[in-house]
Nucleic acid binder design. Sequence first.
DNA 1: ATATCGATGCTCT
DNA 2: GAGCATCGATATT
Length: 162
Amino acid sequence: MTIRGCSGVVTETEAYQPDDPASHSFPGPTKRNAAMFGPAGHAYVYRSYGIHWCLNVTCGHGHGVLLCAGEPLEGLALMASRRGTSAPRLIETGPGRLAQALGVTDADYGRPFSAPDFFIDEGPPAKILTGPRIGITKAADWPRRYGLKGSRHLSRRFPSSV
DNA sequence: ATATCGATGCTCT
DNA sequence: GAGCATCGATATT
């Protein structure tokens, strides 16, 4: 993951699909979720609780993946200053925190992840943990939260994570 | 250590 | 006008 000079490893995601009651795409295409029904591989950004920005990767046809946490690598100082903390653990652990650290706002809405300074690439094979989702009121128990096994940079621990 | 609670603005009913 | 895919601070074990 590289966003305007800041890079890191995506350590945690959540998946949403159109038949998921918790998904923003559930009610069908609207003005806000338009990007989710657009082409895959683009940014879907929304404001959460009137305060935070959250960043998703569109997968086409109303599907999307929320970036929940990451491990910051390059651009650490910039991300720390944007977050107002120097604790590496607290820079990108959480959807709102991650977007804030990367400087992502609605200005990036609909932007394709295909530019040299704005992309997400595939890392080496990794063990992935699965568990119920966090912070939602509907269908929270759907096992669509995915985390990098052994990473300290997760928004929360996974249940019975070995 | 966990639990609760307020802030804040936008979307959809 | 309600509800929300959050965070951080404060209160309580």
